[in-house]
């Protein structure tokens, strides 16, 4: 059990229909501040009528291996948690917003109820308790969201990344994002 986990999310953009099921499930599961989103649906459409292509993605914090937010945080409130996930310790957060400015994905926001920064946690409170899924993954009607350990070659995420074509968001930002999208 000395092997270290590397938690990642693999999201299948081929099957995602952008229903926002993940968005609503996340809001209720995590008691997210009203009017704020830890995850969201992004679409891009290329071409012109009638030759069009569209990609739909459920996006969220990328839990980067080289997280700009953790580097920017002056108080250690942003930290690398279990499996390399990026977490925010609200007790240490001053709300200086340097992490928000540093995030190339604009994945963070200020929870107006506490004045501290909030974002996707990979539902670590569930994973930590031994639950196998995040809330968004749990509800996704199209089963497009997969969460797991990249260091486990037998995990679903490892297999998906080994067999399917994938990309990450803004890899040129050098953050080494840990949310992968399947084409």
């Amino acid at each position: 059990m000395s092997r270290r986990s590397r938690y990642v999310m693999v999201i299948d953009a081929r099957t995602c229909v952008g229903c926002s099921g993940c968005v609503i499930a996340c809001r209720t599961e995590n008691n997210v501040a009203p009017g704020h989103s830890r995850d969201w649906i992004f679409t891009e459409t290329a071409g012109s009528f009638p030759k069009l292509r569209m990609t739909i993605r459920s996006e969220r914090c990328n839990h980067c291996k080289n997280a700009a937010c953790v580097r920017a945080c002056p108080t250690g409130a942003s930290w690398y948690g279990p499996g390399g996930s990026v977490q925010v310790n609200a007790d240490k957060c001053t709300g200086c917003k340097a992490c928000i400015a540093g995030c190339p994905y604009d994945a963070r926001f200020v929870d107006p109820r506490t004045g501290t920064v909030d974002k996707c946690t990979f539902c670590m409170h569930r994973i930590d308790r031994g639950m196998p899924t995040t809330a968004c993954q749990d509800t996704c009607p199209t089963q497009s969201i997969h969460f797991g350990d990249l260091n486990d070659a037998a995990s679903e995420v490892s297999k998906l990344l080994a067999t399917r074509e994938w990309y990450t968001l803004r890899p040129e930002a050098g953050t080494q994002p840990m949310v992968y999208y399947l084409k």
């Binding site: 599961e29 995590n30 008691n31």
Partner: peptide
């Protein structure tokens, strides 16, 4: 910050 007795990098449970 552990030294200050302020370290508590616990995973917050939203309590839902």
């Amino acid at each position: 910050t552990k030294w200050y007795g302020l370290d508590a990098d616990v995973l917050a449970d939203p309590g839902t």
